[in-house]
Structures are given as C-alpha cells and as structure tokens.
Design a protein around this nucleic acid. Structure first.
Lengths: 210, 210
DNA sequence: TAAATAAGTTTCCTATAGGAAATTTTTGTT
DNA sequence: AACAAAAATTTCCTATAGGAAACTTATTTA
C-alpha cells in the first residue's frame, strides 16, 4: 500500500514544516522579560518565586534583568517552580499559522480526485492548507485484504463514517469488523489499517485524518 | 447559543489539560541524550555539529555525556545550528496521551445523544477520551437563524459534510451559503457559525471538530 | 513626615560552564 | 596486524553562573 501513505504523508509533512517555521521565529533573547511577566502575572514577589523555584532571589533578579544566561537546570527549576511549561517561557509565536476566519466549501463531486488501486479518494477542502484535519470522501474499490501489499500506517488518528454500502475494517491489533451504512469508526493510524467493500456496490465512506 | 459551546468546550478543556500534563512529564534531565540522538540522526560528527552551532566540540561532548548543564544561550546555539526547535530537545513525551492501537466503533444510531434546542447531536466514538477530533452526527432542527440567541464561537476547526437534506451555513465573515447533500464545508470555529435546515426533512450532517 | 518593612539589586565568593589543546578511542586502509 | 586518520573525550584555564549577604529602593504604617 504505497499509495495511501504517500498522499497523506506529503500533506502532513507540509504541516509539520510550517509549524517548525513558526516555532523558529520565537524570540529566545527575551527570556528574562518573559520570566518577569509570568512572575508578575502570578502576583509573586522575587522572594515568593525564590521559595517556589528553589532559586536565589539574586539569581531571579539577574535572569529577569538579562544579566546572566541561566543554565538549563536553572530553567527547569523555574519552569517547575512557576508551574508552567517551557514554551511559555518564550514570546507567543506570531499566530501566522492559526489563521482566523477561513472557510472552504466543496460541492458534491467537486473535490480533488485521487485514485489508487484500492480506493478512489475525493479530497475535500483542498483550498485550505495547514489544516488540522484532512477530510476526504472515498469509494472503496478493494474487495479483498490481499489487494493490499502491506499494512498502511502513519501518524495521527482517523475517523471514518460509512455513508453507503458496507465495509470490512481491518486494523492491525483487532479482529476485522464489518461496518454498515451509518456505522463509524475512530482509530489510531499508527496501527496498520485497511478497508474492503463487502456490499454489492462499492462502499462510500467519509474519512477525516488528524 | 450557550448549548453547543458548552458540550464542545468541556471536552476541549479536557484535551488541553491532558496535553499540558503530557508536557509536564517531559524529562529534561535527558537533554544530552537527545542532543546526541538528533546529531546522529543528521549524521553529523561532533566537528561538523561544532561548525554548525558555533560551539566547541568539547562543549558538545560534555553536553551529550551529561557532564554539564548548558546555559540557555548555548541551548539556543544548539537549536539554531542543528535547525531544530526547542521541544525537540526533550525526549518524546511518553505517549500516554497519544496511545497507539486504539479503536472505537459506533454503530448506527448508537452514539451518545445530546439534544439542544437547535440541534440533535449524536456523539460518536465516545469511548475514546483525549482524541484529536470530536466527531458527531447531527440532525439540524433549526429552521431560522433567529433561533440562535447569539453566534457560537470556540477554538479549533470544523469539517461538516451534509449527509442528507440541505442546510444554510452561516459564518460570521461570509455570506450565508446553502449546502446540499454531498456538499461539505471546512471553517475556523473562532468565527461565529450556525446551521439551519432548508429541506423539508431536517438535514443530517456529519461534523468533526478538531 | 519619619520610621519600619518589603522588595529588588548588587557585590563578593565559590562552583561550574565553555573553549582550546592535548589525549584517548574508534574507524578505516593496507 | 600495523598504521593513519577520524572522532570523541579529557584536561587546563578563563569566564561566568549562582548563592548568601550587603545594600538600595519602594512601599506601608503610625
């Protein structure tokens, strides 16, 4: 099954790269500023923060005033003592990736076709890049598990709703299960998975990967 | 519309808390181990990494062998030089939240009912907590936008597929649009959104929130 | 307003980080 | 197996981090 992971993996890779870029724009040089903001947002004096973190007041003062670059073990004491996590020590990344106000409409039959030997995918909402979910409507052509050269596995989770027909869902660590129209399944994609039509007409399913 | 954000927000809060917990369980004491893994995964010698990061070979060796706790400015040089981002410096969190091998089947009509004045939600895959997506099958009872006291807004994105009937999709920053059976929409939930049935029979949609 | 207290900063000293060079270990070649 | 080269580690020295105490500034109290 080199077909399915291929098209899904490509889009997932794009998403991952975009996120990495956003992270890379984070400004680490303002660590001290952030520490002070966080401390004040919790209405803590240096003495109180000192008690919480196990770090000397003078150390905290020097960090906040950018007089020293703390060692990593000190940063961890800060994090644990202030009850935050490490990303919070950085300025909020610009929300470039978390666009607000996007919408994409896909009319019936007008998604992007993506045929493979076993499925006939119709990708939906393809105008939006960097989505949290990848939805598609699939006609299941496969009639036997033997049509799959190997298990498909990839990161993420999948929700699948049987719109019409019936299918046999194979997942790596469970017995195969037959799903009828209106049934649905949610599973972890790290385990191998495959779908086979069992109805006279090829089954049609709505699939969403995240 | 206090109904819809209510049930969605609760579950989203759970997810967010779970993720924060996973982050807190990250093991910072293995920084050196991670640095070595990353370096080797890029097939770099200490010398090459030294050139990329601007840090001495001996410094890198001492970090990797957990002999020193590097200052934060050194960590930043590491990150920039190796082209990674800071979270990657930590061991992958225990995959407790991203369990591998989960599957949940929901039979037709056997999801968890959640009726509201405007929708009749049937939550799917409810046996799985801490999911990336929240799927549900909804009968749209509302017949007019006026039935909604106010816009529904919440974090995340939604994919919606019209299974039967037709609906009018209202989103805050676009003209309302009518969707027929087989049409689908993907939109950002931070903008207000609402759905109204326009067909004789109440429309049925498959909704997924992430 | 003066005095006391709280909060933050700086100084001094010790411990340790970081770099260059030396040494050791590992790998590759003959 | 011997040797050379590459790679990693350790040593030595300087710079700087981190803590305790002293000092300064800001706030509160009478």
């Amino acid at each position: 099954m080199p077909d399915e992971p291929h098209f899904l993996k490509e889009e997932k890779v794009q998403i991952s790269r975009a996120e990495a870029d956003a992270e890379a724009h984070v400004e680490p040089l303002q660590l001290g500023q952030r520490v002070r903001e966080i401390r004040l947002s919790q209405s803590l004096t240096l003495e109180e923060a000192s008690k919480l973190t196990g770090l000397a007041r003078s150390t905290l003062s020097k960090i906040e005033n950018e007089q020293i670059s703390p060692t990593f073990s000190v940063v961890n004491k800060l994090v644990k003592g202030l009850g935050i996590d490490i990303p919070q020590l950085f300025s909020e990344p610009t929300r470039g990736m978390g666009a607000v106000g996007r919408r994409d409409i896909t009319r019936k039959g007008e998604g992007t076709p993506h045929p493979t030997p076993t499925y006939e995918h119709e990708l939906l909402a393809t105008q939006l890049t960097k989505k949290k979910m990848i939805p598609y409507r699939t006609t299941v052509r496969a009639r036997s598990f033997e049509e799959y050269p190997e298990w498909v596995r990839h990161d993420g989770e999948e929700f699948m709703y049987v719109e019409s027909g019936s299918v046999l869902l194979y997942t790596e660590f469970y017995e195969p299960i037959e799903l009828m129209s209106g049934d649905s399944a949610y599973y972890d994609c790290a385990m191998g998975h495959a779908l086979v039509s069992t109805s006279d007409d090829d089954a049609i399913v709505i699939w969403v990967t995240a």
